[in-house]
Design a protein around this nucleic acid. Structure first.
Length: 871
RNA sequence: GGGCCGUUGGCGCAGUUGGUAGCGCACUUGCAUGACGCGCAAGGGGUCGUGGGUUCGAGUCCCGCACGGCCCACCA
């Protein structure tokens, strides 16, 4: 062993010899640099499709820090990638950064203390303040976008550092960002194809709207939150000859001016006589019809509901299906807008009174307006009783702070409702891991109630490659969009000019305007296989990697990322985007609570990596079953670290028998393995190889690890103990030669089995005695081991280990050292098992310190140990 | 309301075609042993949520229920 052996030589091509004091410290830095320098994980793009394994890596959202949940799931994917690479596949394992969209905007706003005002001109000299001020500074859209780029680049460097420390075997030359020109080109091209195929359309329609972000959101971005509210009982007087009144209950009395009908169930006897008649709204004197609809629930409130434009999604359904009037009052900023009382659509019995009452509400937020209208209703006598407080589910944008409103606006949609059956069939065609995750997808598709809204009224995103002509009167013609030519992509319609126009015509009569919106972040993320695979720019690459083999992701984004990717692939290519979807679980905090920023229980991974080492953290992650929620468990990381240390020490021990005077490791050939104990061990190891391989083929990395680890510990505890005396013998003799060859075989195999999980320590040990990288070494095959001498009898190691265990038990029971000699060992067992024992009798004697061995055939297996006297 | 997952020693989990309950952590005791004290050896500890059923035999298969978590739908 040479002194320089502790520091591996650059290159890693030639073995370094076994160091005296192996350790885990610094392995991450050493080996991640070396892998990078050597291109260990480079994708071989000359490989034909059937030799390629391609992964549609989730691009993490670039808004702050990665958390330990990322480490968890990306480790799973990395283990699979490493297995596939060792199995001979050329692994296409790119990394992406999801850096467009709202999360980035929000972070930039807070980080720099700015807000985007698209009306402002670009300021080339703008620099953000050192510290964000109290009031955000308004900046132009180009300035804002520049800040977004600046901040995301910083974050992405930190992300890459973390991934390298964790040891992800990503090919970093295939990195993409969702805001990059490349992604924008793919995204815009995909949009133009949707348009050409009739799959995308624009429409002015009631839209889910976040009043703080001032943008539309899609069905997939909704979440329900239990919120406080109150039932208000409001009395409507009947119109015409019929005397009497109708009471409704509502949680949104402020929408009374927007009321367009009352609705009850068609079979509800209480209200049947009223269908087809009219009532009048209190305070505003508007005549509205009473109508019947199946969705009205006789059990709820008074059994009859007030329909407003628009209080919730059910209102939209009623409005559409009953062909009701439109009286929208909520503006896009969440305040009530002006209303022309008495004019068409706003006819009232008393326009002046209506206007006076409404003046009390106009300009207020919905919350303020609610408070005021309750007072007005109470004074007028239309409010019956006191409001009853309730807690009820209210729809929120998942990132928003205030309830969604529904406003009418012009949006781009992708036709997904027409696609349900095809999508359900694709869902069944996809191999889900674990399989039950398929239900999530199916129930989402079955429950779709609207087409996919892909436009967002935001700034940092992929713009629509679309302009609209402005006619001579200055009116924008949205029905005749001017499309960008595919060769020009990506374009920004706010600065680029459509063919045939000049910049001076922007916004002028007879000129054009750009589409002001950007695409939903999922409209771009749904194309990650196309972006990563070079769709449209590198057809040779794309043909080799698409459809991809694997989409790994969390179950929380099945209805967004997975769903939209399937939609886009179906519409663009008519195939599934990948063959397999591996769905990982959540990471919970040590108290098994879901981690979230608001709870303040988010754990950042770098300190864990520094404290326990990357292999140890990976061990914890890889112990989490596919699809299973797993708690952060530093205890498991300590176990992982112990395993890594054991790999170092056991390897040093085994290789110590194989080192020559120059420090080089030389093992006898495979044919030297003749001892029954050695062959028995190799035979058992080959079964482990089998199991690990089957598990990995089914993406069950956790099972592969568990089986490998179990074998490894028994290998150390039993086999190494049994064989070490013989292995120290004269290398020229057949017994020692067999032991040394078997040790080399077994160590090589186990290092390769562990390499997907513990890439650093296995590479370190590999470098002591093997050329090249363990990560490009071939995955072990059972044949490598069973070919040796025609396979061994697994029973030999089993029986000998059991007897050795009994000897240890006797020594521990007598509180004696493990070195204490055994005067007489008497074993009674079945003849076949005694025969197996006899084949390794000498190894057992050496390991147990046995002087006399007596065996008796018998039905009942017993082991009797008589220890030699002390002294 | 529809659906999915889980319920196994104090804690975290495994248990793949049904055949006398396993692993790690923690706990107790012991051991300086040709690599490892970040080690090694051994030990105690569970009527496998619950009620039925199938079977010679059920943690494992079937039906019901309870509890926990999640998805979808509804939400006046």
């Amino acid at each position: 062993m040479s002194a320089e052996a502790t520091t591996p030589r650059p290159g890693g091509d030639r073995p370094t010899g076994v160091p005296d004091k192996p350790g885990l410290e610094g392995l991450e830095r050493t080996w991640s640099d070396r892998w990078h320098g050597n291109g260990t994980y480079a994708f071989d793009r000359s490989a034909p499709r059937d030799r390629v394994f391609s992964i549609d890596t989730p691009p993490p959202t670039v808004s702050g820090e990665l958390h330990v949940g990322h480490v968890f799931s990306y480790t799973h994917t990395d283990a699979v990638a490493r297995y596939q690479r060792m199995s001979g596949k050329s692994v296409f394992y790119p990394m992406g950064w999801d850096d467009n969209g709202l999360p980035t905007e929000r972070r930039v706003q807070n980080y720099f203390g700015v807000r985007c005002d698209p009306a402002l001109p670009y300021d080339p000299d703008f620099t953000p303040p050192e510290k964000p001020g109290k009031e955000p500074i308004a900046v132009s859209r180009p300035n804002f976008v520049a800040l977004c780029h600046q901040l995301t680049e910083e974050d992405e460097r930190a992300f890459e550092h973390l991934w390298r420390t964790l040891g992800l075997s990503v090919d970093w030359s295939h990195t993409y960002a969702t805001i990059s020109d490349r992604a924008q080109r793919v995204s815009q091209r995909g949009f133009l194809h949707l348009l050409a195929g009739g799959h995308a359309y624009q429409q002015t329609a009631p839209t889910l709207w976040d009043i703080d972000f001032r943008t539309a959101v899609s069905q997939a971005e909704l979440e329900d939150r239990d919120s406080p509210g109150a039932y208000h009982r409001v009395r409507f007087q009947r119109v015409g000859s019929e005397p009497g009144s109708v009471d409704i209950e509502t949680t949104r009395p402020e929408l009374l001016p927007a009321c367009v009908a009352l609705v009850a169930h068609p079979d509800d006897e209480r209200y049947r006589p009223l269908f087809g008649t009219e009532v009048v709204t209190p305070l505003f004197g508007v005549h509205i019809p009473v109508m019947a609809h199946e969705l009205a629930d006789p059990e709820k409130g008074s059994g009859i509901a007030m329909v407003c434009t628009f209080g919730d999604t059910t209102d939209v359904v009623w409005w559409r299906e009953l062909d009701l009037a439109t009286r929208a009052i909520v503006r896009r900023d969440g305040r009530l807008g002006a209303v022309p009382w008495g004019e068409p659509g706003w006819e009232s019995d008393d326009p002046a009174a209506a206007a006076a009452n409404y003046d009390e509400l106009a300009g207020r937020t919905v919350k303020q307006a609610q408070k005021r209208i309750v007072e007005l209703l109470s004074q007028s006598g239309a409010l019956i009783g006191e409001p009853t407080p309730i807690t009820h589910p209210v729809k929120f944008y998942e990132r928003g702070d205030r309830p969604l409103e529904i406003v009418s606006s012009r949006q781009w949609f992708v036709r997904t409702l027409d696609l349900k059956d095809r999508l359900l069939a694709r869902g069944q065609e996809l191999a889900w891991h674990p399989p039950y995750m398929a239900h999530r997808f199916a129930s989402w598709v079955e429950g779709l109630s609207s087409d996919w809204n892909i436009s967002r009224q935001r700034f940092f995103g992929v713009p629509f490659p679309v302009w609209y002509p402005v006619d001579a009167e200055g009116t924008v013609d949205f029905d005749a969009p001017l499309l960008a030519d595919e060769d020009r992509l990506p374009v920004d319609p706010s600065t680029d000019v459509p063919d045939g126009y000049t910049e001076s015509q922007r916004g002028e009569p007879g000129g054009f305007v750009g589409d002001p919106d950007v695409m939903d972040t999922w409209a771009t993320s749904s194309l990650t296989p196309q972006i990563a695979g070079g769709w449209g720019t590198d057809p040779d690459l794309f043909d080799r990697v698409f459809p991809m083999d694997l989409r790994p992701q969390g179950h929380d984004i099945i209805r967004t990322w997975l769903f939209t990717t399937v939609v886009r692939s179906e519409l663009e290519h008519g195939t599934l985007p990948w063959a397999n979807a591996a769905i990982s679980g959540w990471v919970l905090d040590p108290e098994r609570k879901k981690m979230s920023k608001s709870k303040g229980n988010v754990i950042t991974p770098l300190p864990l990596l520094e404290q326990h080492g990357a292999d140890a953290v990976r061990y914890w992650a890889a112990s989490g079953r596919p699809g299973t929620d797993t708690a952060v468990d530093e205890g498991q990381m300590k176990v992982g670290r112990r395993l890594a240390i054991k790999v170092l020490n056991a390897s040093r021990f085994a290789l110590g028998r194989l080192v020559d005077e120059d420090g080089a490791v030389t093992a006898p050939g495979r044919e030297a393995v003749i001892a029954p104990l050695d062959r028995s061990m190799l035979s058992r190891l080959s079964a482990v190889v089998d199991e690990a391989t089957v598990a990995f083929e089914g993406f069950d990395y956790a099972r592969a690890l568990e089986r490998t680890e179990t074998f490894f510990w028994s290998f150390c505890d039993d086999y190494l103990e049994l064989v070490k005396t013989r292995a120290y013998g004269d290398p020229a003799q057949p017994g020692p030669a067999s032991a040394r060859s078997a040790l080399a075989q077994a160590l090589s195999t186990q290092l390769r089995l562990l390499a997907p999980f513990l890439p650093f320590v296995t590479e370190e040990v590999w470098s002591w005695w093997q050329p090249g990288s363990v990560h490009t070494a071939p995955w072990p095959e059972p044949g490598e081991l069973t070919d040796l001498g025609g396979g061994g009898d697994p029973a030999v190691l089993e029986v000998v280990s059991e007897v050795l265990g009994q000897i240890r038990r006797a020594k521990t029971g007598a509180k004696r050292s493990m070195r204490a000699p055994v005067a007489v060992l008497t074993v009674t067992d079945e003849p076949e098992r005694l025969a197996a024992l006899a084949l390794a009798e000498d190894d057992l004697r050496d390991a147990g310190g046995v002087v006399d061995l007596v065996t008796h055939p018998g039905d009942q297996a017993t082991v009797d140990v008589v220890l030699a006297d002390e002294g």
